[in-house]
Design a binder for these strands. Sequence first.
DNA 1: TATGAATGAGGGTTCATTCAT
DNA 2: AATGAATGAACCCTCATTCAT
Lengths: 209, 209, 209, 209
Amino acid sequence: MKKNPSPLKSSKEALILDAALKTFKEKGLHKARMSDISKKARISYGLVYHYFKSKEDLFEAILNRWWQGLFEVMAKIREDGRGAPLELREIIDYFMDTYQDHPDLVNIFVTEISRSTANLTPKRLKNFQEFMFLTDGIMAAGQQAGVLRRDFKARYLTYIFLGALETFVSAMVLVDQKIKGNRQKERIAESILEVFLHGAGSRDKGKRS
Amino acid sequence: MKKNPSPLKSSKEALILDAALKTFKEKGLHKARMSDISKKARISYGLVYHYFKSKEDLFEAILNRWWQGLFEVMAKIREDGRGAPLELREIIDYFMDTYQDHPDLVNIFVTEISRSTANLTPKRLKNFQEFMFLTDGIMAAGQQAGVLRRDFKARYLTYIFLGALETFVSAMVLVDQKIKGNRQKERIAESILEVFLHGAGSRDKGKRS
Amino acid sequence: MKKNPSPLKSSKEALILDAALKTFKEKGLHKARMSDISKKARISYGLVYHYFKSKEDLFEAILNRWWQGLFEVMAKIREDGRGAPLELREIIDYFMDTYQDHPDLVNIFVTEISRSTANLTPKRLKNFQEFMFLTDGIMAAGQQAGVLRRDFKARYLTYIFLGALETFVSAMVLVDQKIKGNRQKERIAESILEVFLHGAGSRDKGKRS
Amino acid sequence: MKKNPSPLKSSKEALILDAALKTFKEKGLHKARMSDISKKARISYGLVYHYFKSKEDLFEAILNRWWQGLFEVMAKIREDGRGAPLELREIIDYFMDTYQDHPDLVNIFVTEISRSTANLTPKRLKNFQEFMFLTDGIMAAGQQAGVLRRDFKARYLTYIFLGALETFVSAMVLVDQKIKGNRQKERIAESILEVFLHGAGSRDKGKRS
DNA sequence: TATGAATGAGGGTTCATTCAT
DNA sequence: AATGAATGAACCCTCATTCAT
């Protein structure tokens, strides 16, 4: 029975995935050489190909870690139906939690997929659009329920929300910032959600412009 | 005095830059071949090297278009000092206007620079951080002036604002969406600023949580 | 006393040889992978190396099947001394019989050895030349005995005879033609020998040009 | 105006083709490395790819030399209609002449195409079958005209004829035999045709068995 | 300026062979 | 005897860059 948080098929496979994750993060998909990965995993060149049939395949395997976790969260969110604010918070938490455990994974998602038109294969685009679509659903439900304003399309809200979220983690990644404990994580999550919901505008005057 | 719509040192140089822009956008920095660029520019292979000493150099020249324009705007903003809301609006406008004229340029900024750790040379990082720093200044001044809330660091607000903005254009780029006239541009710009300032939360209840 | 239809040292060894035979035939010596062979033999990868020390060794073992049978026939022919026509017929029969039982074996001989300068190791060349030499002997004896014309070198006759024979089986292999019963086998054998001995020229006029 | 018998598009292209021809002949299609070819042509590695898009493409270009010449001969033969014996002689001459000028080319045809099932792409098979078919036509016409015996299928005669021819050149290639002047060429051509038409059987008894 | 041939380092992938179990 | 993971040399192909004209 496996208890390991990353219980991969074989220890070598996990080794390779971790090494690949780091390498892709450091050099990007294109500049990462298979030899870099094998060296980082301290295994022979050819062994990588024993577990993954190509560089592309290896990259895909890494992305799947991300998408699988994300779609599980999205499914759970839909089931629970706790309302837009809490649901968005769960998305933020997935990003932040994953960032704590595998900062590189979040980085790769943001840099190589979320923003890269060059690396976008049909399959990847499909995942991405599905995620956007599910988020749209949360926004629309929130508008329906009266907790989100209706004067903008749900899709616009999705853009703004995900953009803020991505940029946050992206920026943290850029400066290799470690999240210091759950306290800071809380704080960041809150700030994103709070600004998204209530705006960055000052409430000093008691009303909005 | 410049009359050329793409006024560059020589017409050939402009030709190459335009071709490079399109090519980088379509294939990404890495997958774009110099031969693709020369072909798209309808010039000979070697001529590219007459004007630009390397692929990297060509890429840099393109980015400079972007940074130069952006820093000009930032300088003007600082001079005018019209307050955070209007100043942020000017940033949005620069993104949107540039997107209208050169969608690919905005795309390249977002995909290859804003989010890519792989392509980030020290020089590029410097530009990027400078831009963040200037935006921080706007945010901080807004907080000072009481138009932006003070319970979050200026840097956090910067992340959220720029993230929302980038994701918007990034998404438009992804679907190759053309902005249909100034009306739509207005609408998008407004929605970004409005949500950033006042939040996506419904105001139906007359007050915030 | 051997009872096994493919009686080899061990059943696994036979399994491997058969699988290798098929694989070499399908893909050629070079493109045949050891993994293909082990897969076809339904044994593990490494076991092949338990029985054969290398791919080359395995190939050699297969060729030996062929050469051993052929040289046995050639020895028997020499002993019996039944005259060129019948002796040539026995060579044809060896080709045809082997083709019936192991078409792939004949194919490999023709494609990888008889015509391939690339795969020709000294040992293989030696076997091949020995066979040519023995055939020369038959031809020369036939010339001596007055049943074969003397106006061409024995070696020339050897070329023409073996060429015709090889091309026949080679062509049958190419279209994966199965010999339908002994009747057809007879017919083919006859036609080769008949044309070789008496020519393709019409005998309508009762005499030759 | 080009007078050169091998007037290729560019001198470099011809250089590469010649080097490739030799290399393929020496090592076979698979074992020939592109670096061998470039080295033999005394050009840089990459230049080969400037002229040919792949190893396969280069190989194809070489084969085309052969097929084009052969099909031209076959077309001329059909037009002239000089009767089977003379027509077959023309085929023999094409083989012998090409052998004199480019022995390696004939070798490659025989080893890598005529007998190799492994290297047989659909396109190559098509050429080969077309050639067989055209030869069938000559044989059938010969049977019709009463100069070739009718008791064997035209296809059988084709096999025997081409087999004898191929084996001859193949054997010459094997021992790297140079044809010493037109005299020997004549002699070889005659022997092939003569044996094919009238058989190797002795005519001492004035009639056949 | 302009062309495109020429160079060669680099990197992904394959696969025969070895080895630990 | 049997397995299949592990190794690493080889080799095809790409493409940025240089160079002769």
